[in-house]
Simulated assay, not measured.
Amino acid sequence: MSRSQKLNQPKPKKHSTGGPGVSKQTFTALCSLAVLILVLAAWEWIPVWLETPAYIWPVFSSVVEEGIRMWNTGNLLEHFGITALEVVIGFFLGALLGLFVGVVLGLSPTTESVLSPYILALQIAPKVAFAPLFVMWMGYTIYPKILVGILIVFFPIMINVLSAIRTVDPDMVNLVRTLNATRLQIFRLVEFPSSLPALFSGLRIGSTLAVIGVTVGELVGGNQGLGFLLVDSEGQGNTAGVFVAIIGLTIIGIVAYAGVVWAERRCLHYIPKITTTTA
Rank of each mutant, 00 (worst) to 15 (best):
Q185M: 10
W262L: 15
G202H: 05
T52I: 08
I254S: 03
V88F: 03
S195M: 08
L99F: 09
I68C: 11
N75L: 09
Q5K: 12
P170E: 05
P20K: 12
T275M: 15
Y140K: 02
Y140W: 05
T83A: 01
L203C: 01
Y118P: 02
G241Y: 11
L107M: 04
T28K: 13
L93F: 12
R3G: 05
E191Y: 10
A164E: 05
I247F: 11
P193K: 06
F200Y: 13
V176G: 06
V176Y: 09
I186M: 14
Q5A: 14
V103P: 00
L184F: 07
I271H: 07
M172C: 05
F91S: 00
V59N: 13
Y257N: 00
P109I: 02
D171K: 12
R3Q: 15
S233V: 02
L203W: 00
A34M: 08
L40E: 08
S4M: 13
K11E: 12
F187Y: 11
V101F: 03
Q5W: 12
M172A: 11
A240K: 01
V135N: 01
G241F: 05
V114K: 06
M172G: 08
S62L: 13
W57H: 01
A29F: 14
F27P: 02
L249Q: 07
E264T: 02
Y270M: 12
R3N: 14
I89A: 04
V103Y: 03
V104R: 04
L38N: 10
N72R: 15
T111E: 07
G221A: 08
F192K: 02
A198W: 04
S61G: 08
G81F: 13
